[in-house]
Amino acid sequence: MNKKSVLFLIAGSILTAFLLSVALAPLTKLNRIQQLILSNSEFIQQFDSTYYYPDLRMLSKELAYKQALLKLGASDSIQMALNLSDSSVMLSIKGVVIHQTKVQVLKKDKFFDKMPLEQEFSIFSNPLPIRKQVATIIKEPVVIRHAPKDTIEAAMNAWQPDTLVQNPAFAIFTTAFDIQIIFEQDTNKNFQDYRKKFGFYFQWYASKIKKSVLNFLRFKPQVYEPVIIIKIPANDLRTIYRALPAKPHLVVKL
């Protein structure tokens, strides 16, 4: 073997190790969640193994969802609930549903299908805090105006009312357990919409790759972020994003 081949072999091995660490991250995550559950003796006692039966599975999911909704209702601020079984997204205050919209398109990672019921029950029977919100939507479309000096200046600067800023709507909510909920507007009408979508996803992938590479270089375990992609009408998405406070909670039913 010459020098080049050795170098190539080393580079290839590092690359393979990196790719494998990324690819195996979902399993690590599921195992980590399982360990968390096993350490929670109270939950283990509560969870009934008959729930694994197909007839009871849906009922147990419903129970977890309702439990989470009830806990969500204890909060004073606006919160979000995502029911993937009946394809709906809801906003609520103190348990009162104030806005509801139908999910047009739904995609979720295989991770959620492979998640054992006890894990699903344990995670989703509580509201998940949303740790990070990123969006193309302006949360508060503030318009700054300076006080006119006199009535003539006020008349000259007369403001024409218009709807709030309506830019293309894409948003990512990262919750506890690093679950990412990606909201997309259901239709892209023009070039600007597609450009915004491309830019939005490009940034998202770039940050994911950067995070993975840094974790690998620092010998840290890879963080797997399971994704749920939801398409809803743009106006509903803007409404939801603008309505949510800085640190909202989310309830999910898979």
Binding site: L15, L19, L24, Q34, K114, P116, Q119
Partner: peptide, 28 residues
């Protein structure tokens, strides 16, 4: 080959993982 591997390897591995791994216990 490296380029293809970068794209395909994680996908392939994930595919194999989801095919082979069954985390739920056998129903009692």
């Amino acid at each position: 080959g490296t380029g293809v591997l970068i794209i395909l390897l994680p996908l392939l591995v994930r595919f194999f993982i989801w095919q082979m791994v069954e985390l739920e216990p056998e129903p009692i």
